[in-house]
Design a protein around this nucleic acid. Structure first.
Length: 501
RNA sequence: GCCCCCAUCGUCUAGUGGCCCAGGACGAAGCCCUCUCAAGGCUUAAACUGGAGUUCGAAUCUCCAUGGGGGCACCA
């Protein structure tokens, strides 16, 4: 698919970046745009930086930068340089670098590669509409391109509002290379005199990102495929400055689960309804682990030849930018669940205990540390999301259980027969010196046989009686944790309920 | 409308001319294990978008078609 390898970038030490704009919530797409450059940097012993592209004052969302930082932190994607921690190439927030862009834009004007433009936005809009109507590719009509440098200078000095546009060559073509797709040739005539510096003095992406990537010595630009069409412009800009070109790799977009169309607002809402979200901020609350989420997004767009289940460290070991795939990927929440469950099973007892504790507390349950440690092994392999712990183990931390009377009646038995089985069980369990599963299970199995019933029937009654639910961790292990006294008390209560039916 | 990109099981993918009557993972189905639910083990179904080339030989190279995606802002 590609004839280009990552090594011919240049021989500079690898420096990669995640350069989001703080315009909304951090979602799985941004997470993956951060992950790959991070992995490349770590894999090669390079540097990974966070840069905030906040040049659009209109779309700026307060708090978005913090959500980005929190998201990266949660995932364990650590950056070596960034707005909050500084670094040798700062500042890392573009609004704090406006003087740099201003200077660079004018340098391009001096070099005859760009020009000031005084055209009114309203007129330009009319031109656009006209071109669209004539089925033409909308583009700048070139009015100010004709101005002499002196004339332009005079009008700027006179305080007239202006933007700076790139002076795109009219003739010829340019060949650019995307690492995942190979060389792409574009006719210059299809390109526009794009705005580099806006009239508010701030740069557009086309200028800001190129300037910063150069100044920050970025060697590999890994970004979304929405930038693929503007790569020719970007290469033109870089060459106009005479700078070294980084390697470009454009990641494909995420498609909705059906694979038809990209993720939309509607899909996001639908996903949330059945316990899924594409927003990192929701993931924790929904019971997802950073390990699970990371593993999930890593594999959408990265063809790993070996084992699918990986920790972040293992990803770093195996990462290769050459194995990124150019085609769009449909999100698959079932796979997220799978990875989440798998990573939960990989956790140590202590670790998992610490992670599920907040869910119990949030549900208003008092958590006894020692008991929690005994509960974890019973539920670990049953959890898909962390908050499932409430369903599987909530009863361990409640004073009383409220069994559903109907559920106390075993399949194929009457209420009276069920009560009888419970009574017999009570006799045995209460006669035991200690209630643990090694001691309790054998005599209980004998009882089941003597009664001519199935384990399913008898244990089912006891399960509902002692846990209050039809589905629970293994019965006798659960009883052991609950404690003999309380178990007997609950069975007694169940018998009473059954006798009233 | 114009420009560009992409195309292997339902989904994520392996595959860079013979090792492929296409491999893995998720999901699905079945079986085993089993006190429920899981986990685990085994098995099965499931794909090279279509058509022309190139070649002794094509999932792999070329062209066209089709489908999907992206872009055409003083947004990123």
């Amino acid at each position: 698919m590609t004839a280009v390898s990552s090594s011919d970038a240049n021989d500079r030490p690898v420096r990669t970046r995640f350069a989001p704009s703080p315009t909304g919530r951090m979602h799985i797409g941004s997470a993956r745009s951060a992950l790959y450059p991070f992995l490349l940097a770590r894999r090669t012993g390079g540097t990974f930086i966070l840069r905030i592209e906040d040049t659009d004052q209109k779309r700026f969302v307060p708090g978005a930068e913090q959500e980005l930082i929190d998201g990266l932190h949660w995932l364990g994607i650590q950056y070596d340089e960034g707005p909050d921690i500084g670094g040798p190439y700062g500042p890392y927030r573009q609004t704090e670098r406006r003087a740099i862009y201003h200077e660079q834009a004018w340098a391009l004007v001096e070099a005859g590669k760009a020009f000031p433009c005084f055209c009114a936005p309203e007129r330009l809009e009319k031109v656009r509409q006209e071109q669209l109507k004539n089925k033409q590719n909308p583009h700048y009509d070139g009015t100010c391109r004709l101005l002499s440098p002196e004339e332009a200078r005079r009008r700027v000095d006179a305080g007239e509002k202006y933007v700076i546009r790139f002076k795109m060559p009219k003739e010829g073509s340019i060949t650019t290379t995307d690492l995942l797709r190979g060389p792409i040739t574009t006719e210059n005539s299809a390109l526009d005199d794009s705005v580099l510096l806006k009239s508010d003095g701030l740069p557009t992406y086309h200028l800001a990102a190129m300037v910063d990537d150069h100044l920050m010595q970025i060697t590999h630009v890994i970004r979304g495929s929405e930038w693929l069409p503007s790569m020719p412009l970007h290469i033109h800009v870089i060459r106009a400055f005479g700078w070294q070109e980084p390697v470009f790799a454009h990641l494909s977009v995420f498609l909705k689960p059906s694979g038809k169309g990209k993720l939309s607002k509607r899909d996001k809402a639908d996903a949330m309804k059945d316990g899924h979200s594409i927003y990192l901020g929701d993931m924790k609350e929904l019971g997802y682990t950073p390990e699970g989420v990371l593993n999930w997004i890593a594999l959408m767009g990265w063809g790993v030849p070996e084992d699918d289940v990986m920790t972040l460290d293992q990803m770093i070991e195996r990462f290769s930018i050459d194995h990124l795939t150019p085609s769009p990927a449909a999100v698959n929440f079932a796979k997220l669940d799978h990875f989440n469950g798998t990573h939960i099973r990989l956790l140590s007892t202590e670790d998992l205990a610490a992670r599920i504790k907040p869910y119990f507390i949030q549900a208003g349950l008092g958590v006894d540390e020692a008991r929690l440690l005994k509960v974890v092994p019973l539920i670990q392999e049953r959890l898909v999301t962390l908050d499932d712990c409430l369903d599987f183990a909530g009863f361990f931390f409640r004073e009383n259980v409220e069994p559903n009377p109907d559920e106390l009646i075993a399949k194929g038995l009457t209420a009276a027969q069920s009560a009888e089985a419970a009574r017999k069980s009570y006799e045995i369990l209460s006669s035991l010196p200690e209630l643990n599963h090694q001691i309790a299970e054998p005599p209980m199995r004998d009882l089941v046989e003597k009664l001519g019933l199935t384990p399913n029937q008898v244990f089912g009654i006891l399960r509902v009686a002692t846990t209050g639910q039809k589905v629970s961790p293994p019965l006798f292990e659960s009883m052991e944790v609950i404690g003999k006294e309380k178990v007997l008390e609950r069975i007694k209560r169940a018998i009473a309920i059954l006798e009233m039916l």
